[in-house]
């Protein structure tokens, strides 16, 4: 995972350096990718590693190209994306609703705190035997794992967010006689927004990991299952090609969530400092 929590902008003195850094960053990043590709291409060709285990990059790319023409690949990609997105959506809605309710009621928060701290660190993969028992290799298995893993990421962030309401803002809202619902809608929710977005970003990556894991381990239909099939049939270039696709998917999701973040949090210090 390459995700991090949003950081506050650094001192003003650092800005000019960051500005030029930002302009050069895509170029440098691209250069880094090219070097990595060149290394993967060169290592098997120079015989440093056995090309049975690590085929040259061009071979992987050719295999990927072939797969792109096959309907099976697109079906798998679609299944993975649907599983990921629906699990993430359920986790987001559940995490936000539960988080706002628990966070708004101090008693509820005190009662649930220890339970949440107990359930949260249970790795989702530990639930694999359980879901297999119930759903076998149907998509529901993956869905439960994805929701379980993503839910805690969202919930914990929302809880922090709800607790972060400035007392002065709360007093202001109360002095203008905002109703309870109005305070949640126009004070608590915007305050929690940066945390919700962070939760979304974390949950999106974790959801992808669990979706692929479920497909790979349990055999739920999707790209992960295709990777497993390719691997067991000894199709090494195909396996690598699919892994690359999953990696690209992760990058794409991260880029999208960052774009969402910048848009939703225009007003927030972490975003406007870089504007």
């Amino acid at each position: 995972m390459t995700t991090t929590t949003p950081t506050m902008p650094g001192p003003a003195a650092l800005r000019p350096v960051r500005a030029t850094g930002r302009r050069r960053q895509p170029v440098l990043g691209l250069l880094g990718c090219l070097i990595a590709v060149a290394v993967v291409e060169a290592l098997p060709r120079l015989g440093v590693v056995d090309s049975r285990f690590l085929p040259p990059f061009s071979t992987m790319a050719r295999s990927l190209g072939e797969q792109l023409t096959e309907g099976e690949f697109w079906t798998g990609l679609g299944q993975t994306l649907v599983g990921w997105a629906s699990g993430l959506a359920i986790a987001m809605v559940a995490g936000i609703v539960v988080g706002v309710v628990i966070g708004s009621i101090p008693l509820l928060r005190a009662v649930t705190a220890s339970t949440i701290e107990f359930l949260r660190p249970i790795p989702s993969v530990a639930l694999i035997p359980l879901v297999v028992l119930i759903y076998g290799s149907r998509p529901q298995s993956a869905l439960i794992l994805v929701v379980y893993a993503a839910f805690w990421q969202v919930l914990v962030q929302v809880l922090y967010g709800v607790a972060d309401v400035d007392p002065v803002v709360r007093d202001t809202a109360r002095s203008y006689r905002f109703s309870r619902w109005a305070i949640i809608r126009s004070v608590v929710w915007p305050t929690a927004m940066p945390y919700v977005v962070t939760g979304f970003r974390l949950a999106a990556s974790v959801a992808l990991i669990l979706e692929i894991t479920a497909e790979l381990i349990i055999g739920v239909p999707g790209l992960g299952k295709s990777i497993g099939v390719a691997q067991s049939s000894g199709a090494v270039p195909e396996t690598y090609a699919l892994v690359l696709v999953v990696g690209l998917l992760g990058v794409l999701i991260n880029v999208c969530t960052r774009a969402v973040e910048r848009r939703v949090l225009r007003w927030h210090t972490s975003v406007r400092g870089e504007a």
């Binding site: 002095s175 004070v187 927004m193 927030h268």
Partner: peptide, 22 residues
């Protein structure tokens, strides 16, 4: 007994009293 309708408060901490997202 609660914030009355005919009253408005201007707080010292304007930076925190105004909603930054609006």
């Amino acid at each position: 007994t609660e914030p009355p309708a005919g009253m408005a408060v201007v707080f010292q901490e304007y930076g925190r009293s105004l909603f930054p997202w609006l």
